[in-house]
Design a binder for these strands. Structure first.
Lengths: 309, 309
DNA sequence: ATCGATCCTTGCGTTGAACGCAATGATTTC
DNA sequence: GAAATCATTGCGTTCAACGCAAGGATCGAT
């Protein structure tokens, strides 16, 4: 049952409303003949008379009244749709889903998201916190509009929108002995109580490679799969951890934590990447949010973090 | 805001549902090229992408989802309309409004209406009880689909669908002295206690003319504007009244009242007419009900009333 | 990487529905 | 009964939608 001949119904509606085909003709801007024909045709296809012929003022039949109400329903429906569409185009409504590593939670992510949602209320953002491989998968399957991962990835169907260096750094409380050093080696670190990522995290692998290269083996007193735990462990004061700046942005900014570079461990070449599926054009809200992340990321790169600015 | 290009939305809907333009092409029976073009054009007029290009399986954008839901709403609306229309065509729904004189209330009217509504449940009938002049007016203004009046009317724009003779008769209880007579003259009547219509009723005028012709002046003991009161007055036994058969059909049939002709008063030429507006074609339910009244009226005419059969 | 299969897009010629103009028929008003 | 006002019908025109066919693009597999 295909949709009714849109125009015919419209003509009928106006003619019935105004009480005359001629008035409808003036209003619509279509010859009376067409209106007459369209209505006649509509009646033919419906098998029912819609208006009573042989009268000066047009009057609807009962079936006509039904059709009239039907068209009103169509108009109402369309209007609602147009409103929603308009809101969508104004970025007042919509959904964005992103996939990020746990490391991004914290000040960086919160700030960007807060700004965005403040500027575009009504946009629902769903952020899935996943391991890197799953992030890539989610982006590939369009389960997420874009993703934020550590390191750049080699997947051919992934487009890297932005990459910024995020060297791993020693993170500790300002009053911790390590904070007095300008920079540290892996060997220096082994003298402190360490909180390090467990095998589930990508950070773990990166550290293991560095350890192998430097032939230094770090012995953590706390191993966790949660970056939150690592951050808090450092903030408590006793322990030291290793994270990229971005993973502790807020604490670094307000001074509750400090960051010190690690030299000669080749850890400074780690980076974070903003990725999305190759060939997928993002419309409206997702594009906006991705741009916001991109700008923030690049701003970070230039200044090497607000804390350093 | 004209209705959307119906087909384009339909194509989009099917393509999105089936996940492929090709499948939609098979289902709809339209070349893939057309579908592609229609969707592209739809997107252009809406200014928003509806599907994500460059992918094997079609995926909707957020705006696409909106359009999808909109189309679903259209379909639901149309379906509801189609159902109502179908019911209307099967005479399972609709409205009929008729205008009748009070004289028709009672057995005749009830029987016809009962039969009709039993056969077509769901049809709403509104019956306006009005004086003759107002009935004609209502029919002329299409406030009533048709009307039932005493006497035939001379209005040029009224079509008389049926006219049957309804001579005025003497109506009284079976045990009343008048019931023993085979027929009565106006003069005979003047000897009984009479209940006669008041000046508001058309019956009154007819009687006045007869009185003038016969030079007999009837003195009623009860004057009323209600035919119901006249009928009940006769049924009580003491009084005699003058009505057409049809106005007391039920009572005449079951013997609670009897009718006797009036001779030489020219009252036997009165009639009732089924009228509607000239040029107005009645569709469905009104036509049916009118036909039912017409048939009943004519059946009455042939047998001169069930009581005489 | 390359090839083949499958799908979407684009170019071009064709068709039919909707249109405007003008004449005709119908209805109301003076 | 004539004028005025509508609605309908006939006819030629136009433009959107269509089918066919060629040209990308993508996905899966060798």
């Amino acid at each position: 049952m295909a949709a009714m001949h849109g125009n015919a119904l419209y003509y009928f509606y106006e003619a019935a409303s105004l009480g005359s085909m001629r008035l409808a003709s003036d209003k619509i801007g279509v010859a009376v003949s067409s209106i007459s024909r369209q209505i006649a045709q509509l009646e033919k296809t419906m098998g029912v008379a819609l208006i009573e012929r042989g009268r000066r003022a047009i009057r609807m039949t009962e079936a006509g009244r039904l059709a009239y109400e039907y068209y009103q329903g169509c108009i109402a429906n369309e209007e609602a749709f147009m409103n929603r569409l308009h809101e969508h185009r104004q970025l007042k409504a919509g959904k964005v889903s992103i996939a990020i590593g746990e490391g991004f939670l914290g000040g960086f992510f919160s700030k960007v998201l807060e700004d965005f949602q403040g500027q575009h209320p009504g946009i629902a953002v769903t952020a899935s916190v996943l391991p890197t491989s799953e992030i890539v998968h989610a982006v590939l399957e369009d389960d997420a509009h874009f993703g934020l991962i550590f390191n750049d990835c080699t997947e051919p169907k992934i487009r890297v929108r932005a990459t910024v260096a995020q060297p791993l750094m020693v993170i500790c409380a300002p009053d911790h002995p390590a904070a007095k050093r300008k920079s540290l080696s892996l060997e220096d670190l082994s003298t402190y109580d360490l909180c390090l990522p467990d095998a589930n995290l990508r950070l773990h692998q990166i550290l293991r490679e560095a350890e192998r290269r430097e032939q230094v083996w770090l012995e953590p007193v706390l191993t966790t799969s949660s970056i939150y735990v690592m951050r808090e462990a450092a903030r408590a004061g006793r322990m030291v951890t290793i994270l990229p700046r971005i993973a502790a942005a807020a604490e670094l900014e307000d001074g509750r934590l400090v960051a010190r570079p690690i030299y000669e461990a080749d850890l400074e070449h780690t980076s974070v990447s903003l990725i999305h599926r190759l060939g997928r054009q993002l419309d409206g809200a997702p594009a906006r949010l991705m741009a916001a992340f991109e700008a923030r990321l690049k701003g970070w790169s230039e200044s090497d973090g607000p804390a350093a600015a």
